[in-house]
Design a protein around this nucleic acid. Sequence first.
DNA 1: CATTGATACAACCATAAAGTTGTACAATCT
DNA 2: AGATTGTACAACTTTATGGTTGTATCAATG
Lengths: 112, 112
Amino acid sequence: MQTVLDHDRIFGALGDATRRDIVRRAIEGEEGVAELTEHYLMSFAAVQKHIAILERAGLVSKHRMGRRKVVRTNLEGLRVARRLLDRYEELWRERVERMNQLINESPKEADR
Amino acid sequence: MQTVLDHDRIFGALGDATRRDIVRRAIEGEEGVAELTEHYLMSFAAVQKHIAILERAGLVSKHRMGRRKVVRTNLEGLRVARRLLDRYEELWRERVERMNQLINESPKEADR
DNA sequence: CATTGATACAACCATAAAGTTGTACAATCT
DNA sequence: AGATTGTACAACTTTATGGTTGTATCAATG
């Protein structure tokens, strides 16, 4: 297992509706692969592949519970994604601030 | 132009390092397509395609500035992504809360 | 108005992604 | 042990993605 938590894999994994739905359901962390498959129109193997992609991205992990393997969402994976978006918003804020500063520092055309 | 702001397109677009870098640079909103191309090892057309993908996702938009078209990041696009991640964290919080409630409501084995 | 600089887009190629079926393995229950 | 239930994975097909080159458009400038 890899769970590298790089942005390519994380955002790539979240770019599919089925996978996002698995992440959502797996926050509860009660369903195995077969149970998750019930919710979708695809084969067991297809769902398994989606879970593998989420796993490699570090967004979920599997835990044996009796005969099945329960899929649980990994909060830290989601937070890695969120932190990048937060950083972008911070850059945005800084740019706005810099622009305001320029406006205040230099006198307006009309005032000269 | 579409700018649909659906999660598939937004997360899909963010799942590529070049595109995330374009988003980052375009927060400043000063570079045209040709200028952006300078930063990468690919052709002008390739960068143009990446920008088109970001545009369709609603993450950036182009604005004519003289003879070139400046690429600017669209804050709302980033916020759509962030809100989904926030919702997941909220679901997580609710689950933890529910679990704590169960522990407090039912008496422990050892206390019986 | 012809030229130049910047962008747009079509056509094509190679590789990766998303799905399928089939088979093998692992753990539980009689 | 043998049957059953749940999971893993290989092999294959189809479609999407990321890159290329070449040609066309579009706005500013001499």
